[in-house]
Structures are given as C-alpha cells and as structure tokens.
Design a protein around this nucleic acid. Structure first.
Length: 892
RNA sequence: GGGCGAUUAACUCAGUCGGUAGAGUGCCAUCCUCACACGGUGGAAGUCACAGGUUCGAGUCCUGUAUCGCCCACCA
C-alpha cells in the first residue's frame, strides 16, 4: 500500500486524476454503451481565458449533476461551445489586435476573420485545460461542438427562412446606438443607470404672439433636430395655441404645434418638444403627424451639418454651448436637478444615443407567442419556479429585436444590394448577379448579426441541423439547461423561440437558474471592481474538492452565494477528515493482516454476517443509514438542492461514520481474527460501507473519492463509472436505528456528566447504569464494552434497583439512570444552579404545553396526532420535573 | 414608475404540511487517548427587522412600515 500522509494534499492528488479522466475519456466510453440519455445545453466558458467564480459555480453544478446521472447509468451529452460567445470574443479580438498593432480595417475582412478563428481556437484550448483542472469531467475534445463551420450555414438558413415568413424585416427606426462601438445594439444590451442630471426648461416663442411655450428636456442638444412641439389635445391651458407654430430657438426654424397624446399634461409644463430622429417616442409621434426627421449627429455622436453653428462639436460640448446661448437670449427658463435613468452600452459603458438608422429586425411577437405557450403548458419547467413568471412577463412585453450590428465580427447578414437597380435580395447562397436586373454590381450588406442570433440556434445547430442527424433525433430536446439569470432573456428566451420555430419543440425540458456569486461584502464580483476571487488561486489553496463542496453547500436555489474563505477552509478540513478516516481503515486492515478486499460486483451494501449469522449493531445501523441517505441525496439532486445533498453527506460522514461507526468498529477489530485467509466480516462490512459512502460523495468531491476508492480495492475502472447506491427499503432497520440512538444517548450523558463533574478527561471512572426498561437493559448488557470505551470508563455496572439518591453523581432520564463514581467532592452550588436551570426550562415548557392542552378550541381543532404528541410530551415533562424537584429538595 | 427577493446566534446561512428554532465558522472549558490538533469531548449563545391581522397555535400565511439588494420600463 502506498504511503498516506497525515494531511491530505489535494495538490498532489487532483492533477493526477484530472489527467487520468481525460485519458480514459469517460464520456466516450460511457456514451457508447449506456441508456437512457441525459443531455444539457451548457453556457460557454469565457473565451478571454480568464475564469471567474461564476463559471466555477456553473460548471461545478453541471458537473455534479452529470457525475450523478452517469453513476445512475444515464448516457450523458452536453453541448458546450465557444463559438457563440461573441461578446467575449470581441474582447479577445480587440485585445489581441491592440497587442499586435493591427488595424482591422487595413487588414481586410477575410484576413480578419481568419485571425479571429485562430484566436478562438487558442483560447478554447486554454479554457479546456483550466476546466479540467477545476474538476469538470466534460470531454472538450468534441471538435464539432467547439469550432463549428456548419453554424454559418445554419444561421443563414434560419435568417432566410424567417425573412421569407415575414418575420425578419429591414427598416428605418430609432435604435440604441453606441457612439464608441459605432454600432446599433439591442434593448437588452443597454444598461440603465440612475444618474444625477438636469431638466432644462426652454422657452419656444409662439409665432404671432409674444408668448412662449416652455418645454422641458434632459438632452438640450437634440432640440436642434426638433420638428414640432406637442401638447395634449385635452389640455385646456394650451387650447389657445391650437393650430399655431413656434420658432425653434437657435435654429430659427418655424415648427408646428401638434396635438398628441405624447404630451402628458401632468408632467412638467405639459409641453414636449418633438425630435423624431433622436427619440423613439418622438419618432412614433412624427410618423403620426408626418413630421420631417432631422438627424443632427453623426455615428460618433458629433453634431453634423444639420446642427448649424454647432456642427463638429461633440454632443456634450454642444449641450454646453447651447445652454450658454439660450441663457444669453433669455430663453432658458429654468434648470432643475433631475434623476434620470441613463442608458449606457453594456460593453463599453458609453452613453447610448437613440439614433435613426436602417437596421434589420426580428418580428418577435409570433415567435414569443409560441415560446409563451410552451412554458404555460409546462413543456419547459423553470427552477426556481419564480423565474417562470419573470420569463412570461418578459415574453408578453417583448419588442422587436434589432439584429444587425455594424461590427467586424460575427455572421454576415445574407442580403445583397444591387448597384444598378437598387434591389435588395436575401439569399441562402452567395449571389453573383441581381435577380431582377442581372447586374453583377452587387454588394453584400456589411452588417453582421447580433451574436445572440446564432446563439439562439445552439441547441440544434450543434447537433447537425439542418441535416436530419442521429444526434438531433437522440438529443433534441435536451434534458436540461443550466445557466445564470443574467442571460435568461439574451439566450434562454431566444433559444426557446428559435427551437420552437425550427424544431417544433422546446430546446430543453428544464431550465435551472443558478445563483450569483458575490464577495464577502455582497458585491457582485467583477473585474472592474477588482473584488474577484480567482478560482485557480483558491483551488490551489484549498483544493478543487473543497471549493466545489463549498459552492454546492452554499447554493440554496433563488439566493446569491456570498463566498467566504472561512467556509472553504472548513471544507478543506472535511476533505482531510475523510482522508484520515480512510487512513484508519487501511491501517487497520494492514495491522490485522487482512487480505485485499474484493468488492462485490454490484457495489451494493448488504452487511455480511458473522460465523453464527450475527450482525453487529453498527453494521445494521450504518447500512440502514446509508440506504436512507442514498434516497435523500437523490431527492435533493433531483430538486437541484445541492446545498441539501452536501449538508447530508457532510453530516453523515463526519458525525455518523467517523464519530460513531468507526469508533464502534475499533471494538470489533480487536475481536476479529488476525491474518485470516478470508476477510473477517468486521472488516468486510467496513470496506463496503466506506465504498458506498465514497460513491455518495463522489459527485461533489470527485478527486479525493476517486483516490480513496482506488486505494480501497484494486480496480480497473473509475468511481465516476461506478453505480450510484440505490435506496432499498429492505435495508432500512428501524430497530437498529433506535438501539443506536439509545446507545448514543447513554454515552452522551455519561460524557456530559464527566464534564460537569470536572472529571479529568484522562481518568477512567466507574459508572452504574439502571435500566428503566428492556431496551436500555439490552443496550447496557450487549454494548457494555462500547460504552466503557467511548465514555472512557473503568467499568460499567448494571444496577438492579433505581438509585436512592438524586443529584450529585446521579442523573435520571426516562429510559435509564446513571450514577458516576466521583472521587472529588461535588460543588453543591454549581450542582444546584444546574438543576434550577433545568427546572426552569421544564416549567416553562409545561406552561406552554398546558396553555395549549387546557384550551378546548385547541383540542377541538388541532389534528389528533399533534394532540397525542403534546399529551405524551406533557407526561414526560411532568415526570422529569418531579424528579428534578426531588433532586433539588435533596440538595437542600 | 412597475415587479422580485432579502432581514433568524458574534459571522455566513438553512428552516419548501403553520405544531415550543438548526448548521458551519467563531467563542468558552478540557484533552496532543496508537485515523485525524485541518482533531476529540462537553458547553454558552436567538424578542426569528418592526407594527397589526388570520389561527387553538405564526420564523412559516395576510396587510402595512423600515432598511438593503436585484430585475424591468420609450414620460420629455
């Protein structure tokens, strides 16, 4: 047997198994042979190559489920990919370009795209290495899912198909425009931020009068593009201005006063300026009233020639100048502080400018309708459930989706414009000639698609769509999608829509939304804040198993995870505890000269009886507990309660297996035959119990369990492929559990008495036990040695009669009484204080019980079993209280 | 503006049928007993944010208040 150090060293064990798993290709072996199937759609790791705790959490939860399912005999497949991580890709690309001093415009599109694919491939590999290090058992070598040339074709097909159905259209609308990225972005990519700004009140002179209309705006620079002012038709204050016009200050243009619901009489002055080219609402109003659209800015948000004297100024510089000029002309009526939700670009944080431009849109209402119904009808289920509501609300209020981007990366829009006749054609194949006039002067639309457009196809494009592949047939719809709520709308909702449209079924049966990882100050971890905990650093420090376990146990659904190093420290200790429990097992076997353990074929745990058919209490008990645990953990994982599963196995391993089972086993070992050819049952059962316990723990702590499982017996397989323990009703042993509880109670009470009497922990004392009933008598006689050993006694005598004296060295409980031989004099004051406290507690409880049981309404309305339980409890408390009072009386 | 969530021990959090509150860490005492001091044993510690209500009974259900956090939103 290889040497085991006293301290578990994950740094030594983990890399070995990570490597082993990859070489063994667990998934390939597994997928080839097993049924049924379990498939997942997996969010991609960050292509930048830097991982954060969010990824670690996500992949830990995924990996736990996959390991568990695999042990249950499921054929598993996940669809991980790097292609669709467009946002991350852009970051990589930008960084790489800058580092290499390249200019994307100069290098040309083709060369640029080639470079991008190169970088993606590289970073994908970095990720692979890192994820394996973090314990993910996924096989990253499925080339077809990582670099997928087929995706471009699928994207084009989807685009054309939607276009032909009228679900994609091209039009001139107000879109969110990022002046720095110089592209349109979708509503979802705009983050709103409460900002302290100003509301400027500006006087517009009404023509033919000496009166003014005062309009309020937060963006004065847009006034240069005003083509009307609006008042509400029902607003009597301004009835006299109906049909009149105003002179637009600074531009000296006459613009009409229109009547429109756009103006809310309750807000500000009730008059609103109308700028159709720079505001979505105004745009709509402009359409209603046939107003001209005057764009006063260029794509970098500098004022253009339409801005008259202000042309060439940046929008914010222009704002300043305009305010100064208005002030000078006495047209600035008022400036008041105003809090507004300023829209910024998700990527670069630049203030977004609503801008009039021609873009491609997806008409989402019909798609959303199907996606809505699928969830309402329960074809896809959300966990936690409250996300169902969030999803449905969003789907109901969905706007059309702007899908064209003026970027250099991504799938190009398959549309061609004819230089001769102006015809626009959408086509599956590259076009050489215009369909209409046969001209060859065609140019493809320079825009690319929103990265989420191709992502939306992931569940089926990765499986070979539009070909009717076997994969598609077998794995669509997938079983599960695990992701964070931050991309619920970006990705999940859009996969739903596209899946239903093109596959006529939902892309996944279940969606599990995981938690968000926060730092100790509850701040969202982000690189800009610099509060990130680096997964590689903490796994180095605490071990992958400990970090995984921490993430699992801190993950009740619907909450955030506040990650602390203290917790990780605690679970590193847990790993160490398991390591040492194993050391004990192995050392014991070695010492007894027991032969190597040959595990049973099925890996089940049925205790092996002794020569006379007898079974030790601890074996019956641990067997019953393990069976119960298998059921409880399976249920927990079924419900995505990683926290509960982790809590169960933690408590079991430490406080049942180590604290009691191993301690009791030490006795059987002393009695077991040495150097026998066949393994004695005492050892056999221990090995089996340990084997089963390791399997239960394996999904959460894969490395240490693999290592110990391999050491436990010679194997040619992996614990990752071993069957998960099944719950078996027949293995439950209520009697053993009750007997064990009584044994624990007796030992616990003796230990407690020792501590209270301040008996030196090293001193063995004599104790007498009076059994008030058969069960206690049985335990007292059958497990005398166990009690002596675990309570550190010189002897345990069974008393024939109840003890006369009370208090001091005697303690009475319902099932038994104990008398401890104390050498030193008992501190009576301390003793009295303890009993008084006990008396007080019991009296308090009795009052509460009495209040309920003397209440007729309670007796009439409460369920029978509650009443019965409380009655029994009252009797018990009454008896105990009487004993305590008697004790106190004797103590004086 | 609309919606969602949180508030329980010193700290971080469980508590999903309403039936006198749990864990881990930390703390106190004690023990380096031949698996483990990253350990053993014992112990102390809570007006379940606040105010009402429903109920025989509320941490749990309802209403309101306060504080914190998040999501969504085209009122200038």
């Amino acid at each position: 047997m290889a040497e085991m150090s006293k301290q578990y060293n994950p740094g030594e064990i983990e890399p070995r198994w990570a490597k082993e798993w990859v070489e063994k290709r667990l998934f390939e072996a597994d997928a080839a042979s097993r049924q049924p199937m379990f498939s997942l759609v997996i969010p991609p790791p960050n292509v930048t190559g830097s991982l954060h705790m969010g990824h670690m959490l996500e992949h830990t939860q995924i990996d736990i489920l996959i390991r568990w399912k695999r042990m249950l005999g499921f054929n598993t497949l996940w669809l991980p990919g790097t292609d669709h991580a467009g946002i991350a890709t852009q970051m990589v690309v930008e960084r790489q370009l800058a580092e290499q001093g390249l200019d994307r415009r100069a290098m040309g599109r083709e060369a640029f795209e080639k470079k991008v694919w190169e970088w993606k491939a590289q970073s994908g590999d970095t990720i692979k290495q890192q994820m394996i290090r973090l314990g993910a058992s996924c096989d990253w070598s499925r080339e077809r899912f990582t670099l997928d040339p087929g995706l471009s074709r699928a994207v084009r097909k989807v685009f054309v198909s939607l276009f032909e159905k009228g679900l994609i259209y091209r039009g001139k609308y107000i879109v969110n425009w990022c002046p720095r990225c110089q592209t349109a972005i979708s509503d979802l990519e705009v983050v709103h931020e409460e900002t302290q700004g100003h509301l400027y009140h500006i006087r517009y002179p009404v023509i033919g009068t000496d009166e003014y209309l005062v309009v309020a705006t937060t963006r004065p620079e847009t006034m240069l593009g005003d083509t009307a002012v609006a008042i509400n038709p029902s607003d009597d204050r301004y009835a006299k201005f109906h049909g009149k016009a105003v002179r637009l200050p600074l531009m000296n243009r006459d613009i009409p006063i229109i009547l429109d619901e756009l103006a809310d009489p309750a807000f500000g002055t009730g008059v609103v300026k109308v700028t159709p080219a720079h505001d979505a609402n105004d745009f709509a109003a402009g359409q209603r009233h046939n107003l001209p659209q005057i764009d006063v800015m260029d794509e970098t948000a500098k004022m253009n020639q339409n801005a008259g004297a202000y042309a060439g100024l940046d929008r914010f510089a222009a704002r300043k100048r305009i305010l100064v000029d208005l002030e000078a002309q006495g047209l600035l009526a008022k400036v008041e502080p105003y809090t507004l939700a300023l829209g910024r670009c998700q990527r670069c944080h630049t203030v977004v400018e609503p801008r009039l431009s021609t873009q491609w849109f997806v008409k989402v209402a019909p798609l959303a309708e199907a996606a809505l119904r699928a969830v309402e009808d329960g074809h896809t289920r959300f966990t936690p459930e409250n996300y169902t509501k969030i999803y449905l609300d969003w789907m109901r209020n969905i706007h059309d989706w702007c899908i064209s981007r003026q970027l250099w990366w991504g799938h190009r829009i398959p549309a061609w414009y004819c230089g001769s006749c102006g015809e626009a054609t959408v086509s599956l194949e590259d076009l050489a000639r215009c369909h209409k006039c046969q001209s060859a002067s065609l140019t493809q639309d320079p825009d690319v698609l929103d990265t989420w457009f191709s992502s939306a196809l992931w569940p089926f494009s990765t499986l070979g769509w539009p070909e009717k592949t076997q994969d598609l047939q077998a794995f669509y719809p997938t079983s599960l999608m695990i992701t964070g709520f931050d991309i619920l709308f970006f990705w999940v909702a859009r996969m739903m829509m596209m899946g239903l449209e093109f596959m006529h079924d939902v892309p996944f049966r279940e969606v599990y939304i995981h938690q968000l990882v926060r730092d100790a100050e509850k701040q969202k971890m982000s690189k800009t804040k610099g509060n990130v905990i680096d997964p590689l650093e903490v796994t180095e420090q605490y071990g992958t198993d400990a970090v995984r376990f921490t993430l699992a146990i801190m993950s009740p659904p619907g909450t955030d995870i506040v990650l602390s190093r203290d917790r990780m420290d605690g679970y590193r200790a847990f790993a160490n505890k398991i390591w040492n429990a194993a050391r004990f097992v192995f050392l014991s076997l070695e010492k007894a000269g027991a032969p190597a353990w040959i595990p049973p074929d099925d890996g089940s745990f049925v205790p092996v009886p002794g020569p006379e058919g007898e079974l030790a209490l601890e074996d019956r008990w641990i067997c019953s507990r393990l069976s119960r645990l298998a059921a409880e953990m399976a249920k927990a994982w079924e419900d995505y309660r990683y926290d509960r599963a982790a809590d169960l196995i933690y408590h079991f391993f430490w406080h049942e297996f180590c604290d009691w089972y191993l301690e009791l086993k030490k006795l059987s070992f002393d009695a077991a035959p040495q150097n026998s050819a066949k393994m004695p049952p005492a050892f056999e059962n221990l090995c089996r119990a340990f084997d089963v316990a390791l399997r239960l723990l394996h999904p959460m702590m894969p490395f240490i369990t693999e290592e110990l499982w391999q050491r436990l017996a010679a194997r040619d397989s992996s614990i990752a492929l071993a069957p998960f323990p099944q719950h078996d009703r027949a293995r439950l042993d209520e009697i053993a559990e009750k007997e064990m509880a009584l044994l624990q109670e007796i030992i616990g009470n003796i230990r407690n008495m020792r501590a209270e009497k301040r008996v030196d922990a090293r001193l063995k004392v004599a104790v007498e036990l009076y059994a008030a009933n058969g069960s206690a008598a049985h335990i007292g006689s059958q497990h005398r040695q166990a009690i002596e050993r675990l309570a550190n006694l010189s002897s345990l005598q069974l008393a024939a009669k109840p003890f006369n004296e009370q208090g001091g060295a005697v303690r009475s409980l319902p099932d038994f009484s104990l008398k401890i031989a104390v050498a030193e004099a008992v501190d009576l004051d301390e003793e009295r204080a303890r009993w008084r406290k006990e008396q007080q507690k019991l009296e308090q409880e009795l009052t509460v019980l009495g209040r309920q049981l003397d209440n007729e309404q309670f007796l009439a309305k409460a369920p029978q079993h509650v009443v019965t339980n409380l009655r029994a409890r009252r009797e018990e408390v009454t008896t105990q209280l009487a004993k305590v009072r008697e004790t106190l009386r004797k103590l004086g």
